[in-house]
Amino acid sequence: MKFRIDIRRKEGLSDPEGMTTHKALHNLGYTDVTSAHFGRTIYLEIEAADPAAAAAEVETMCRQLLANPVIEDYDIGVVG
């Protein structure tokens, strides 16, 4: 199974990289941009017989290692 994990800064925490990029886009004339936020995407392939168990395992991986639950939220998607 293939999983796609999108990780981003928790809402409300500052995202300096996003803010700076937002400002740079404005300076280039893209004034219709109202916000920019950065995230990371991780693709995982897992040999799994039981899709539900694999999804639960990915969830655990996110909490334990892939995301930092202190400052990050994440979404897990199945891509194949």
Partner: peptide
């Protein structure tokens, strides 16, 4: 420059 945000040097070149 520009915090190296986005990519290093990417914003400064503009």
């Amino acid at each position: 420059a520009h915090g190296d945000y986005l990519r290093t040097g990417a914003i400064a070149r503009f």
